[in-house]
Design a protein around this nucleic acid. Structure first.
Lengths: 205, 205
DNA sequence: CAGTATTGGCGAGTAGCACTATCCAATGTC
DNA sequence: GACATTGGATAGTGCTACTCGCCAATACTG
């Protein structure tokens, strides 16, 4: 198909498709002359994936690029790609307090989690704890442990469903699920809160 | 304290404090003359809260404004403020497909959840499901139900810990926890994934 | 085969956001 | 009385993600 059809099929305007080509987010089509190129079904899928990562995952294009590069590069081992992808999609910010970082490390030790010492998640979690402190609504240790228990259960169910027949599909699934399942979880949690608190209010009145 | 001290105490540069004052994110200090005003401990807290919402919650200033307005306005009933706050912090985007929206509604019926028909969370969830479809990694119904079950458990634990003695504190806590606990959950889930998949890889080799 | 439309490629322009810098006169402070 | 600081206002900056306009080459149309 030509670019106009690609644009129509993917719902992305032609100028934006051109822009993505320039930025290297979308591989070039097969040139059939100096001023024409044909695009495949893969291009449609890639475009839809980019839109999903941006609109639902909330990623910036630079991060989309790094995630896609990690997904495409089947050479790097899975756990490394995961690290790259996770650091690519983690917001940068000020360093966390030593106190919160120690809480995080204590949790990791308590659960005997194998978490890389340079994992961005340690820092991100510590900063989130700092933010709760600043908002005068510090998260108690037992609540933190409870959340850890819950997500452990989630991960035990989620990870085995990853298709590891090929390392490519495994990487793809792992990275995409990290980014795309998170909004699902958050939306569900907000709905559950809506339900529980409206029920509590009804009961009280 | 004067503005320079407020800036030092909160870690926000003076020009930025001025900017927040102009944007109405920070209430003005008490004027002590034409060119001077004093600021209180409340201002420090408010500034730290703004930074937490922006840096950890990832909110834009316009959304911070709406969240703070909802938090400050103790007149509106709690469940309404919650709705306002949730719609304020939900990203806007294209409408979801009818198919995904129907899946969401079926889930709500199945769980007998009391979710407002105009709740943004219905749309947000449906769009997230669309994104997974687009990425060729559709979420099966039983997985969706599993997530719903998990977050129900979370909400049952979380909601009762909210201090409902005053509607002001209740609103404040509800909104802040929605925004600030989410990064905690996500970081924990990513760590749990890191753990489970590194364990799985080690076992395999 | 003439005329029109479309294409890929490129440089430049735009809109929104979150600051950041500069200036000013009016005050405090030493 | 010299000097620094303050609040207020205006303008400018850097970044991101597009969006526009233009062009020559090419494809379709009658």
């Amino acid at each position: 198909m030509w670019m106009s059809e690609l644009a129509a099929r993917s719902g992305v305007p032609v100028p934006t498709v051109k822009y993505y080509l320039r930025e290297g987010l979308l591989p070039p089509g097969e040139a059939t002359g100096a001023t024409r190129a044909i695009y495949s079904e893969d291009h449609v899928r890639r475009l839809r994936l980019i839109r999903a990562l941006v609109e639902v995952g909330g990623l910036r294009l630079a991060d989309v690029n790094r995630v896609l590069a990690a997904v495409d590069d089947s050479g790097t081992p899975l756990h490394e790609v995961l690290g790259v992808a996770q650091s690519a999609i983690s917001p940068v910010g000020p360093s966390p307090s030593a106190r919160s970082l120690e809480r995080v490390d204590a949790l990791i030790r308590r659960r005997r989690w194998r978490v890389a010492p340079d994992s961005v998640n340690r820092t991100v979690l510590a900063r989130a704890l700092d933010a709760l402190d600043d908002a005068d609504d510090a998260l108690p240790d037992d609540a933190l442990s409870g959340y850890a228990e819950t997500v452990s259960g989630l991960a035990e169910v989620e990870v085995p469903t990853i298709d590891t027949t090929s390392s490519e599909t495994a990487v793809r699934q792992t990275v995409l699920r990290t980014v795309l399942i998170e909004p699902v979880l958050l939306a569900l949690r907000r709905m559950a809160h809506e339900h529980v608190s409206s029920r509590a209010l009804r009961r009280r009145r």
